Amino acid sequence: MNILILGYGKMGKIITQIAEQRGHHIVAKINIENVSDLDSLDTDKIDVAIEFSQPESAVGNITWCMEHQVPVVVGTTGWMDQKGEVESSCKRNNGSLFYASNFSIGVNLFFKVNAFLATLMSGQEGYQASIEEIHHTEKKDAPSGTAITLAESLLENNQHYREWKLKAADSIPNEVLPIISKRIDPAPGTHTVTYASDIDTISIRHKAHSRKGFALGAVLVAEWLPGKKGVLSMNDFLKF
Score class of each variant (00 low, 15 high):
residue 1 M to C: 09
residue 1 M to F: 04
residue 6 L to K: 04
residue 9 G to A: 13
residue 9 G to K: 14
residue 12 G to P: 10
residue 12 G to H: 09
residue 13 K to F: 08
residue 15 I to P: 00
residue 17 Q to H: 14
residue 25 H to M: 06
residue 27 V to E: 06
residue 27 V to K: 12
residue 29 K to F: 07
residue 29 K to M: 10
residue 31 N to D: 14
residue 33 E to C: 06
residue 34 N to R: 07
residue 35 V to N: 08
residue 36 S to F: 09
residue 37 D to Q: 15
residue 40 S to Q: 12
residue 40 S to E: 13
residue 41 L to S: 00
residue 42 D to F: 02
residue 43 T to S: 03
residue 44 D to A: 14
residue 47 D to V: 00
residue 48 V to S: 02
residue 48 V to W: 01
residue 50 I to H: 05
residue 50 I to F: 02
residue 53 S to W: 05
residue 64 W to D: 00
residue 65 C to E: 03
residue 69 Q to T: 09
residue 69 Q to P: 07
residue 70 V to Q: 00
residue 72 V to T: 09
residue 72 V to H: 03
residue 75 G to T: 11
residue 79 W to N: 11
residue 81 D to V: 10
residue 84 G to F: 06
residue 86 V to F: 01
residue 86 V to T: 03
residue 89 S to H: 04
residue 89 S to E: 11
residue 96 S to I: 00
residue 97 L to N: 00
residue 97 L to W: 03
residue 98 F to Y: 07
residue 98 F to P: 05
residue 98 F to N: 00
residue 99 Y to N: 01
residue 100 A to K: 01
residue 104 S to G: 14
residue 107 V to N: 05
residue 108 N to C: 08
residue 108 N to E: 13
residue 109 L to K: 14
residue 110 F to M: 09
residue 110 F to A: 07
residue 111 F to R: 15
residue 118 A to H: 08
residue 119 T to E: 13
residue 119 T to N: 13
residue 120 L to M: 14
residue 122 S to F: 08
residue 128 Q to E: 10
residue 130 S to G: 11
residue 135 H to G: 02
residue 135 H to R: 12
residue 136 H to C: 11
residue 138 E to N: 15
residue 139 K to V: 13
residue 140 K to M: 10
residue 142 A to N: 08
residue 146 T to K: 02
residue 147 A to G: 01
residue 155 L to Q: 10
residue 156 E to A: 15
residue 156 E to H: 13
residue 157 N to L: 05
residue 160 H to A: 11
residue 162 R to N: 10
residue 162 R to V: 15
residue 163 E to M: 11
residue 164 W to G: 02
residue 165 K to H: 06
residue 166 L to T: 10
residue 167 K to E: 15
residue 168 A to S: 11
residue 170 D to Q: 12
residue 171 S to P: 08
residue 174 N to C: 08
residue 176 V to N: 09
residue 178 P to H: 09
residue 181 S to F: 04
residue 182 K to A: 06
residue 183 R to T: 10
residue 183 R to I: 09
residue 184 I to T: 12
residue 187 A to H: 14
residue 188 P to G: 05
residue 188 P to C: 08
residue 192 T to V: 12
residue 198 D to F: 09
residue 199 I to R: 15
residue 202 I to R: 08
residue 202 I to H: 10
residue 205 R to D: 03
residue 207 K to Q: 15
residue 207 K to I: 11
residue 208 A to Q: 13
residue 208 A to F: 12
residue 209 H to A: 13
residue 210 S to C: 15
residue 211 R to L: 15
residue 211 R to N: 10
residue 212 K to P: 02
residue 213 G to M: 07
residue 213 G to C: 09
residue 213 G to V: 03
residue 215 A to G: 07
residue 217 G to Q: 03
residue 217 G to M: 09
residue 218 A to D: 03
residue 218 A to K: 02
residue 218 A to L: 04
residue 223 E to K: 07
residue 223 E to N: 07
residue 224 W to V: 07
residue 227 G to C: 13
residue 227 G to P: 03
residue 236 D to T: 05
residue 236 D to P: 03
residue 239 K to I: 12
residue 240 F to N: 14
